[in-house]
Design a protein around this nucleic acid. Structure first.
Lengths: 253, 253
DNA sequence: CGGCGGCTTGAAGGACGTCAAGATTAGTGG
DNA sequence: CCACTAATCTTGACGTCCTTCAAGCCGCCG
């Protein structure tokens, strides 16, 4: 599973890259791939779906895919790189809402208000698939399985707040964060024990509602305990089972 | 807006009651009412929709509408009373996920896993509308507006974790909690300044991830400050604007 | 009336945040 | 390739908010 380092310090920043789709196939990591592969839609249906999809990017670190209150018309799937969604509160302080890996959707929460309820920024070099939502909804009315897939995607998004929800200790939060990332990478076929944290400690801390100092301290404690190995932003889970045990009440109960 | 107390101590526990629908109308507070009223579906469509709906209840305080891992086949709308969703974590400790008022939907997060991801219990006497989801999805394929409404409902559920998400003080959390309840009651046509907390202090504390002692103390501080008046579980927001100001960074920034 | 659960109030302890300083890395231009 | 600067990260000391523990109070129901 250990992906060989890409040549050049720059390129290694890119992280895992999902394979691209073509005229007849979605990217293998894509949330919508299953709709076609599983139910055997014919070429016409495939083409109809592909007409909705537009590859956009690259977005370089710091560039935005969309911003708060931009009118909503498309949902995005991360094709490569890592994106961050966030808000700025009344006091001008950033609030990190989530990190988005290859194969994951962004913008589902924009459907109801018809505006993006947050900002989406690239943390490294990011490519998206852009799905026109109006077109997709129209198509869903004719493709029951696509509709089901959309319902599932949306429903899945509802339950996903657990990392922040509880009154958990810093260790539990960080353990859960690391294991959650590992699981999400694993689900997309990447190494579940070794990956790059594209976001800063500050972003992690902000997301977990901790101080960045606390993140540093806990990472050190984990490293001293032999649970993980940290080298800058590279992480290796050395005893994933124990880490998962620390996080068990978040991950969930 | 002050609803006269219903006769008898028991009945007053009931709280606001949404008006019932009939053959041709949904309950006025129902999330799906707008689909029909707004777009003028014909009688056949209305009948089709009404076939999906089943009135269930009463559930008395402590009775469950569904439990964790029950197979999913319906979403619920609260018709009257208040319901609570919760989980029991590894350590056997309860985790309150939310409180559900008349007109609000429960169970949307069960679509993806096809099982209810939590328990739903009545806090007082609760009546539900039960919508068969498979039938509803089928119908949605033929009724674009219903599909849109479902997408919106689901999307709306995604963003709704803010009360717990931030690193807020106990005062901010409780202020936000009170104002949020007021807004939700107001949206359904009930008094926005006077309502009953059907849940215990312990439930509130658990939901906000505080100790119940802290909830007591903050409520007292609010009362001493003249922001609210508390009498047991009855609450009156006396200076809603100031309360909203305390909660401004949650409600949202 | 008496018991029990929920609620309130007080005192002490702990986990995390804040403040501050130093170490490491990344980025830039010579 | 190296030097310089800025940003990020780490580590320590101290303060604070909330929890925990404990006791007393109130309302409800038998």
């Amino acid at each position: 599973m250990n992906q060989p380092m890409l040549p050049g310090g720059q390129a290694s920043q890119q992280g895992p890259i999902a394979d691209d789709g073509d005229e007849l196939h979605f990217c293998s990591t894509c949330a919508f791939g299953a709709v076609c592969q599983q139910y055997g839609y014919d070429k016409a249906a495939l083409n109809a779906l592909h007409c909705l999809v537009e590859h956009v990017g690259p977005f370089h670190a710091g560039e935005h895919a969309f911003r708060l209150n931009n009118p909503f018309n498309a949902i995005f799937a991360v094709r490569a790189g890592m994106a961050k969604t966030y808000l700025i509160d009344e006091r001008g302080r950033e609030q990190v809402l989530g990190f988005h890996l290859p194969g994951e959707m962004v913008g589902l929460d924009a459907i109801y208000p018809a505006r993006y309820p947050c900002n989406a920024v690239a943390l490294d070099t990011v490519y998206f698939c852009r799905f026109s939502f109006p077109a997709m909804a129209t198509l869903a009315a004719r493709m029951p399985d696509l509709q089901v897939q959309l319902f599932r995607l949306l429903s899945k998004g509802i339950g996903t707040a657990s990392l922040l929800a509880g009154d958990f200790t810093a260790e539990e939060r960080l353990a859960a964060f690391l294991v959650d990332l590992a699981d999400r990478y694993a689900a997309r076929g990447f190494s579940p024990t070794r990956y790059r944290l594209s976001m800063s400690r500050g972003d992690i801390a902000n997301y977990l509602r901790l101080a960045s100092e606390t993140v540093s301290r806990v990472l050190r404690r984990f490293q001293d305990g032999g649970l993980i190995a940290v080298d800058g932003r590279e992480v290796e889970l050395q005893r994933p089972a124990e880490l998962r045990h620390v996080a068990r009440c978040i991950l969930h109960g």
